[in-house]
Amino acid sequence: MRRLSLLAIPALAVAGMACAQSPAATDGIAKADFQSMLRARMLKADTDGDGRISAAEWSAAAKARGKGRMGDRVFSRMDANGNGFIEAAELDAIAAKRFDKRDVDHDGRLSGDERKAMVDEMREKAGA
């Protein structure tokens, strides 16, 4: 069985939250809103409140989720500038890439069907 990456778990939760929001449920969710929700969810690992996630904070969050060393590898991929921190701009870039991939009609919003497809794909990859 494949495991969800640490990024996929919050993204799955963000997609679920987006599906449940009333305005977004009918109109879709904009990229900026998707980025904001993912950023807020991921920054919960920022235990010192400096607005970025250190390798130590990420490692602690990964271990709390039972991901251990896998979490360290994910951190390295997410730390695009290699400064030892995952910053809001890096999270926004990841969310934008994920959004663009899922916005199949390229209208700048994730419709209910597009969000459902994203959630279904992540669940399938997780073996759920």
Rank of each mutant, 00 (worst) to 15 (best):
D120H: 10
W58V: 03
S54K: 12
F85V: 08
R98C: 00
P10F: 02
E57H: 00
M42T: 01
S111E: 02
A93Q: 14
D92K: 14
L110N: 01
N81S: 15
E121G: 09
K44T: 02
A89K: 02
A62C: 03
D100A: 15
L6Y: 00
N81M: 12
I53A: 13
E90T: 07
A55F: 08
D120N: 11
I53T: 13
G71S: 07
K31C: 14
H106E: 00
R73V: 11
I29S: 00
A93K: 14
D92S: 03
R3C: 06
G28A: 10
M37S: 08
A56C: 05
M17R: 14
I94T: 10
R77D: 15
K116A: 12
A32K: 13
D105L: 09
E121C: 05
F85M: 05
L6S: 00
Q21M: 06
A20H: 11
K67C: 06
V104A: 14
D105E: 09
R123T: 04
N81T: 15
R65F: 12
R69G: 14
D107K: 03
S76W: 11
A32I: 03
V74C: 06
A64W: 00
N81Q: 13
V74I: 12
S54P: 08
S36F: 05
K125C: 06
I9P: 01
A95W: 00
R109M: 07
M42I: 02
D113R: 15
L91A: 08
D72W: 01
V74G: 05
A11T: 08
G51A: 07
E121A: 15
L7Q: 07
S5P: 01
M17Y: 06
V14I: 07
A55E: 13
A13P: 03
A20Q: 07
G84S: 09
D46M: 09
R102I: 00
M1Q: 12
D105M: 09
A95H: 11
R123C: 07
V119S: 09
I53R: 13
M78W: 12
A117F: 06
A24C: 00
D48E: 05
A20S: 10
E90K: 02
G49Q: 05
V74A: 11
V14E: 03
A128S: 11
A89G: 05
G28N: 11
